[in-house]
Simulated scan of single mutants.
Amino acid sequence: MGIGRFVYTPILPPMAEALGLSKGGAGLIASANFLGYLIGALLAGAPRLPGGRRRWMLGALVASAITTGAMGAVTSMSAFLLLRAAGGAASAFVLVLASALVLDRLAVAGRPGLSSVHFAGVGKGIAVSALVVAALQADGADWRTLWYVVGGVALAAAAAVAWLVPPAEAPRVAVSGPVAQARPGPGLPALVCAYGLFGFGYVITATFLVSIVRSSPVLRSVEPLVWLIVGLTAVPSVALWMRASLRFGIPLTFAIACVVEAIGVAASVLWPSAVGALLAAALLGGTFMGLTALGLAGARRLAPADPRPVLAVMTAAFGLGQIVGPALAGFLSERSGNFALASLLAAAALLVAAAVVLRVPRTSLL
């Protein structure tokens, strides 16, 4: 999922140069992916999916890989929009269904702390795709080849998932305490709102960071490193932020992570140097998957015994923020000539998210 959902960022600069894509067009393609993500999140939250959750998850992984590779076979804007929308829907199915499967199994095993290993997979996918793209570009590969190869890598990963995830699902246990309540607990609307603002706040930098770096002659030397750092810092981030939540509670930890990410988002445009770009990459990678895990873990604790509908609502709010971000950033950058205004709006949204999430009672997430 980390490959299919996020590899657009490092491939975008050579793709845009070869095809003459405008910033607005590039943002529209990204937003199509997130529109698909929103639709997929709503569908994945359906009470019953015929055929079982594992089958749908594996099908979504294959669909994500195929739509990723197929991006290299087309050149029209309509085809790009369709493929990225389908890939986005597949990504949402993977997140909702894989998280439900894994969290259920961990609950049965009494090892909920291992959820950080599950969410760290996205960072590993980003790091792998960054290395693959950098190596292919150094060898002179064009943008089409980049899509083909990373799509193949994602397909191989899907085969590994089919082998590693057991066909027999874990029983869905009702957890004692607040998680087992019949209705969502107090604070869920604030958590959903904060999660949506986080979706808007992170996505502009996550989509255009490599483009921002490539547009500056001073920063071109660190372009191969930027996306790799995002992936590498994302891998341990979930475990670190989840551990912090045990001490400070999910609302306060979520708020702190939003502030840290806001600093990174602002640094991407206010500190136009190699240090600023690398700091932005590290702070983005070090927070966005941690925030994702914190939000979903908090929602599950506020949810009834079946967490999938609430996880889907959270993912949908997140997806809505993602849809607005790239399209708005492309629109504003075409008029201003850079991503500064859009990035600062994103940083402000993250600060608002930090304030909103503090309205969630800590006692409801114990």
Rank of each mutant, 00 (worst) to 15 (best):
D104R: 07
R84L: 00
Y202N: 08
G113L: 05
I11Q: 11
M1H: 13
L252N: 06
D142S: 03
M57F: 14
L225S: 11
G196I: 05
G125Y: 09
V179A: 15
A262D: 09
E169T: 10
S343C: 03
G52H: 10
V324L: 15
R183E: 13
T205H: 12
L284M: 06
G321N: 12
L83K: 01
L136S: 01
P304M: 02
F6K: 14
L19A: 00
L188R: 10
A239V: 00
S31E: 07
G330H: 05
G121W: 11
F6P: 11
L283K: 10
A156H: 03
G201Y: 09
R183K: 15
L38W: 08
G201E: 11
A130M: 08
V210W: 12
P186G: 10
P186H: 03
L35C: 07
C193A: 15
T9Q: 12
W143E: 09
V356N: 03
P13M: 12
A60R: 00
Y148V: 06
P47H: 07
L12W: 03
G140I: 05
G88N: 08
R5F: 07
S215T: 09
Y8L: 00
V7F: 13
A86Q: 00
V150E: 10
V150G: 09
A100D: 12
V203M: 15
T145M: 13
A109C: 04
L58S: 03
V275A: 14
A70T: 01
L131Y: 04
L106M: 00
Q181Y: 07
P251S: 07
L240D: 05
G4N: 11
S336K: 09
G88D: 04
G337Q: 08
A157K: 05
R144I: 05
E223R: 10
G4V: 11
S221H: 11
A349S: 14
V96N: 04
A156W: 09
F318H: 15
P361A: 03
V94N: 07
A280G: 11
L341T: 14
S99Y: 10
W241F: 07
A266L: 10
